[in-house]
Design a protein around this nucleic acid. Structure first.
Lengths: 343, 343
DNA sequence: GTGAAAGCGCTAACAA
DNA sequence: TTGTTAGCGCTTTCAC
């Protein structure tokens, strides 16, 4: 395995100079730099990250902690982050918790990461107070994606606002009886999103002078199956909603499926709006509130990289914009409640 | 930052002993081991991977090269791999090529990985001859998932057989005019799968005494949109197929969408079968040939770990089983060609 | 069962 | 602009 010494010997210079040339530091003559490059190439020299890390204290590696890579949303954020990290010469260490408490504990509680990475990206996980404490002690830049954590660097959308946009769209179409499908406000994934979205929903209805109706708020667990189940509950109500806002597109897909099976026509009998602009939303012609996904990963990565290169960098809270995407699952309610068939 | 020296000093032992105790090597008295553990915990000692890597030549890190994390299939394989790697104390370095030729070049061509990881997992990418050469030179275990590369360790399904199963299912239902939607046999992702699947399709028809019909074989690019387009082409044929085998579930979703928009009923007018058992296949009630996905990642990870711990390990070719999952998109063809409406 | 000592391959401070 | 000199924190002989 050829090392920096071999290159140094080859061109009869010190390893220090070779190291400087290789890293593009200034203070190396053009000629020397060229000779170093040529020699390194010819000798097939590849630097050792372990050695560089040990000597410099920097690993040029960023940890990304994700609840579940198989969820499209998280995969897309990871893709965004990977892209900018790679461009800047950083590697991405993936920690996929996948609902495994042991894994979560291992990643957060033991400070495994301390000497392993230069920075950490946490996706849509609301760390506990203890975990936050640990993250803080890392002494490394940390950015949290998708959660609102005052005092920490975060990248997210305005969940409350996004939910308000969705709800307002339904209200503006004339719906007065609007169902909401969300998720547990405290769950495995612990995002802050569920709470904020529910809040946006409620406030918008209230502002429109529509009385609260607890029976219209259901838990869809942020899954297709959950959305399906919640929809069946809603449509079985004595006075069912004419529109449903699902707080995620996957739940909205569940709504569409349930509606189809119950013989409820969308949007004639039931309007449906989601939130995400999932890659399949177009396929379902789902009206939704779009959030930038890869972009959140990209911005988060840029944020930690900025922190890494700028000594007195302060945690920033970035809020990315969302926008309504009207497709074909929303429409004005039928004048008459249509006769619906239920299972 | 507390180091192994601090622990050694704390219990008045040498760093060598502490190192041995920490790594669970034999030749350390139980009492010493306990004292080391206690001290390490108390002092909040965390080992430095860089130092360990430099000294031992092992990074306890595995690179996973994936064409595109946002594709559910790849994310699931990554999840499977991550799970077993983490269990065994290995970290996962993710390289997402995302159709970026530069990225691909950087990962493969420059031997960046040499000193960075102990092993490499390559997902559904058919490396070029040159890339294979580089991978070989790494001198590290490499496992290729989803491609058939004689001489290399691989984990995959029998694509030909899976396609044959799907086709045979349609034939056994009585279909004689069967469409095929596949992908370019040479593409960005370069899998070997497309070729093998097409082959399985053709042979099965031939074995059933059905004459080849080139116009019934279309390219769906392995995407939903591609499946949609290919379906429109197929159904616009003078003598359209009564059944379609899409070589991936996502393309099959495209088929379903096109059929719906064209007013073609599934399965009455058109039977549809996919291949994958995508997480949404159930949602679409799609009949398909299921392949284990996370399992492929798991097995691949186990394979490189085995290679790492066993000196004279030989590359193994693992073929995981597939099975037919009959849902509701396939049925016997209508006696009479039904009258179809086309756009 | 334990310790001393010699690196692993780099970087960084200080000199020159 | 370049070189010298110490390490960085661990593992690994080889002794004892």
């Amino acid at each position: 395995m050829t090392s920096i010494k071999d290159v140094a010997r080859d061109i009869e210079m010190s390893t220090a100079t070779v190291s400087r040339a290789l890293r593009g530091l200034r203070g190396v003559s053009d000629e020397t730099r060229e000779r170093v490059m040529e020699s390194a190439l010819r000798l097939g020299y590849v630097p050792s990250p372990s050695a560089a890390g040990l000597a410099s204290g920097q690993t040029r590696t960023v940890a990304v902690i994700v609840p579940m890579v198989t969820r499209w949303f998280f995969a897309a954020v990871v893709q965004g982050a990977e892209e900018v990290l790679r461009e800047r010469g950083y590697d991405l260490l993936l920690y996929n918790l996948a609902g495994d408490a042991t894994a979560r504990h291992r990643v957060f509680a033991t400070s495994l990461l301390t000497k392993r990475v230069d920075a950490v990206l946490v996706l849509s996980l609301k760390p506990t107070a203890e975990e936050l404490d640990r993250l803080g002690r890392l002494g490394r830049p940390v950015t949290i994606v998708g959660a609102d954590m005052p005092g920490w660097a975060t990248v997210r959308i305005d969940d409350r606002d996004a939910a308000a946009t969705a709800t307002a769209h339904l209200v503006s179409l004339g719906h007065r009886r609007v169902g909401y499908i969300g998720g547990a406000t405290e769950g495995v994934l612990d995002f802050t999103a569920p709470t904020a979205r529910l809040d946006g929903f409620r406030c918008t209805l209230e502002a429109a002078g529509i009385a609260p109706a607890p029976e219209l708020e259901q838990d869809g667990e942020f899954t297709i199956a959950g959305g399906d189940r919640a929809t069946r509950t809603l449509l079985a109500l004595p006075d069912p909603p004419t529109a449903i806002f699902a707080a995620s597109d996957e739940m909205a897909m569940g709504v569409l499926r349930a509606a189809r099976e119950l013989g409820v026509r969308v949007p004639q009998d039931l309007s449906v709006i989601g939130l995400d602009d999932h890659e399949l939303a177009d396929y379902f012609e789902l009206t939704t509130v779009a959030q930038p996904v890869q972009e959140q990963g990209r911005v988060a990565a840029m944020q930690v990289l900025a922190a890494l290169s700028d000594g007195d960098w302060q945690p920033t809270q970035v809020i990315l914009p969302t926008h309504l995407v009207v497709r074909r699952t929303t429409a004005a309610p039928a004048r008459q409640p249509s006769s619906r068939r239920r299972t």
